[in-house]
């Protein structure tokens, strides 16, 4: 919507638009007084503002210095943390080992070293009380590659044959967890015998069993698909523990 003035009309009306008589000059006095008063108030404020500017500059310098100190400290801490991490990495039984805060050491096979390997006639480890020495087919013990518990075995792998059933058991120390045995910890079925809680899964020709007793975790593979044989083996284990 156009609101422009018609130039010809504006010119014709100019005697009116420019107004007539001037009012008394006195009408401006209160306004001028007020303006001067405002200026007088503003002058000390401006002087104060000068001080404030100086103070502001000082404050800014202080803030910058504080920021520099904080950044330097943070950088030093970062370097220290990285150094500590690298040192721990160097000292830890890597590769393939991960020590978690709960004290459990998760290891891959590369972090283990075989310490003994005995075939038939080997002495049965104390952690396998249900296995007789003569039943042992193969027994291997493993320690961590570096520095854990004075070279004590942390994993046993024992093959044995009892009651016409062949079995392989991996025995982990309770504070060690071999990553490749993770599936045993997720077995779906439950069975109880001799006060021991077993987790298990049965397949056509074998059964997988996991249980914990004392200071050990047992990962057992039995070469049987028959439920009766399996339950008899578990009852034997439960009673022995």
């Amino acid at each position: 919507m156009k609101e422009r003035k018609d130039r010809e009309l504006e010119r014709a009306l100019r005697p009116y638009t420019e107004g007539g008589e001037q009012p008394s000059p006195a009408v401006t006095l209160p306004a001028k007084e007020q303006l001067r008063a405002k200026q007088a108030e503003a002058a000390p404020a401006a002087a104060g503002a000068g001080g404030t500017v100086q103070g502001g500059a000082d404050a800014q310098k202080k803030a910058e210095r504080r920021t520099a100190i904080v950044l330097t400290t943070a950088a030093c801490l970062l370097v220290l943390i990285v150094g500590l991490f690298l040192w721990r990495l160097q000292e830890s039984p890597l590769p393939g080992m991960l020590l978690l805060a709960d004290g459990t050491t998760y290891v891959s096979e590369s972090a283990l070293q075989q310490s003994t390997h005995e075939d038939g006639g080997a002495e049965c480890p104390a952690c396998l009380p249900w296995v007789e020495d003569e039943e042992i087919v193969c027994c291997r013990t493993y320690t961590l590659q570096k520095g854990a518990a004075g070279g004590e075995p942390v994993l046993y792998r024992v093959e044995y044959r009892a009651d016409e059933v062949s079995a392989t058991v991996y025995v982990e120390k309770s504070n060690v967890c071999l990553l490749s045995l993770g599936e045993f910890k997720k077995l779906p079925e439950r069975h109880s015998a001799g006060g021991v809680e077993f987790s298990l899964r049965t397949e056509e020709t074998c059964a997988y069993v996991y249980f914990e007793a004392g200071d050990y975790k047992y990962n057992l593979q039995l070469e049987t698909g028959e439920e009766e044989v399996l339950h008899a083996a578990l009852a034997d284990i439960g009673e022995s523990l």
Partner: peptide, 10 residues
Amino acid sequence: YECLGAAMLA
């Protein structure tokens, strides 16, 4: 006042 005084009074 000089430029608009008259118009203001009017």
